[in-house]
Design a protein around this nucleic acid. Structure first.
Length: 413
RNA sequence: GGGGGAAUGUCCCGAGCGGCAAAGGGGGCGGACUGUAAAUCCGCUGGCUACGCCUUCGUAGGUUCGAGUCCUACUUCCCCCA
């Protein structure tokens, strides 16, 4: 990482102030470009899951800030590159996904982030493109002659994504080996189609970004730019978003706005300011005020962080509802109606607590529910369950809690 | 084409003289302490109709009272030679 240069353009200055800057190519020239014109920039996402996750959020926020600064963001969905599999940062060959699966993932991923960007035809409206549009129909030999000849295998072997596999004696298939070439080609293709000059990405993609810049210079004689963001970790060193049962998904149907709000509410003290700068639209002076709070007062800052971050992803209304539900649940100890709710047919009652815990989704199995009870972690309507054999009668809505933070409402119907 | 290795609890890493539901980590989940934080400490971490039963060690067979452990074939990967 280079020390952040003193930028003159609004966009890059904000980018640095918000803590999103890691490195960029030809900083001077890029800064000038931002001063001079409306810049079209892109970030690519592969369609490996049915939802984006917290790890993608820094990139998504970059697109958002580009748009806010009046530039034009391109959301590139890697419907084509997903068919190859990105070897970066992976120890193993990815499982191949079917074309149908990739397409379904793409639709779902895009739907999940619709509040983050404004799409349309306006000058700074976001554009969504799928690189399958051009990658799927490439002809092998012409492609090799036009693009492949600009790539040195010697150099590709020194790229981290490749080198790491080789050093660890982990397999790297020829299919994956082509990933960086396709990503480089994407950049040039987006330049040709949309005049896209900048690719932003996480710092782990630097090698691929540079490859695209090189290719642009060679085949189009144009100066392209790269801008990377740092890998975000919590202040205690953990990779972000790996806390609760795997990834923190952005799609509302995979993690409700309420649970998303909770994720931010549980931010470590030392991260409040940094995360607020990165993941909310709050003014910097307001953030400075919030992070200056000490001790338990920081909880107020965390609530603001949670609400604002949720508003960015799910919209203001959902964020306010999540905040209110949390307030009633945690500060009043009430069975707030906004909690995640599970409906169970009335004829299943009276129901055993184990089954109830599983049906409510707070335990994965009866065995797990048993252990939860043994550890004193399961509560029904705020009463600790001590006997795994008790049955619960249907008496209106029941609050099922696992530990202090997980609460689910069960509604007999 | 020839030779040598590797695959372990479906989160990951990783031990495993033929008696193994399988050591030890990491992670995760609960509890205590707190502020819905961090750090620390404690417990748990295959499933079930549960003092018993069932399913797990790349896949399929075999030897054995008994196999993660031995044999055979296959799959995938790594290394060396050609």
């Amino acid at each position: 990482m280079t020390a952040a240069p003193k930028f003159r353009s609004d966009f890059l200055r904000t980018f640095v102030e918000r803590g999103a800057y890691y490195d960029c190519s030809a900083a001077e020239d890029l800064d000038t470009l931002f001063l001079k014109e409306r810049v079209t920039a892109y970030i690519g996402f592969d369609c490996t899951a049915s939802s984006m996750h917290i790890g993608n959020l820094v990139q998504l926020m970059t697109l958002r800030r580009l748009q806010q600064a009046g530039h034009r963001p391109i959301l590139l969905m890697g419907g084509g590159t997903t068919k190859l599999g990105d070897p970066s940062g992976k120890d193993e060959v990815r499982k191949l996904l079917s074309s149908e699966q990739i397409e379904a993932n793409k639709q779902s991923m895009v739907a999940g982030i619709r509040h983050l960007l404004k799409f349309g035809d306006g000058p700074s409206d976001a554009i969504m493109v799928d690189n399958a549009e051009w990658l799927d129909t490439l002809e092998y030999v012409p492609f090799l002659r036009e693009v492949g000849r600009h790539f040195s295998v010697n150099r590709m072997l020194t790229m981290d994504s490749v080198k790491i596999r080789l050093e660890r004696e982990q397999p790297l298939s020829f299919l994956e080996f082509n990933y960086m070439i396709c990503q480089a080609y994407d950049f040039v293709e987006l330049y040709k189609r949309y005049g896209c000059r900048l690719q932003s990405s996480g710092s782990d993609q630097w090698g691929n970004v540079v490859s695209g810049i090189d290719l642009g210079r060679r085949v189009e004689n144009v100066q392209l730019f790269g801008l990377t963001t740092p890998l975000i970790t919590t202040s205690s060193g953990a990779k972000m978003g790996k806390s609760v049962s795997g990834a923190v998904w952005l799609n509302a149907d995979m993690r409700s706005p309420y649970d998303y709000w909770q994720f931010w509410r549980n931010t470590e003290d030392g991260d409040v300011g940094r995360f607020a700068r990165l993941f909310t639209d709050l003014p910097l002076d307001e953030i400075a005020r919030l992070e200056a709070l000490q001790g338990a007062e920081l909880n107020e800052a965390k609530k603001v962080l949670a609400t604002e971050a949720t508003a960015v992803l799910h919209g203001r209304k959902a964020a306010d509802e999540a905040a209110e539900t949390a307030r009633r649940t945690f500060e009043e100890g009430a069975s707030a109606s906004g909690l995640p709710t599970v409906e169970i047919p009335g004829h299943e009652f009276p129901i055993g607590v184990l089954t109830l815990a599983v049906r409510a989704g707070v335990s994965a199995s009866n065995g797990e529910a048993r252990r939860l009870i043994a550890n004193g972690g399961l509560k029904i309507d705020d009463v600790t369950v001590t006997d795994a054999k008790v049955e619960i009668a249907a008496a209106g809505t029941i609050k099922v809690s696992a530990g202090k933070k997980t609460h689910v409402l069960v509604k007999p119907i």
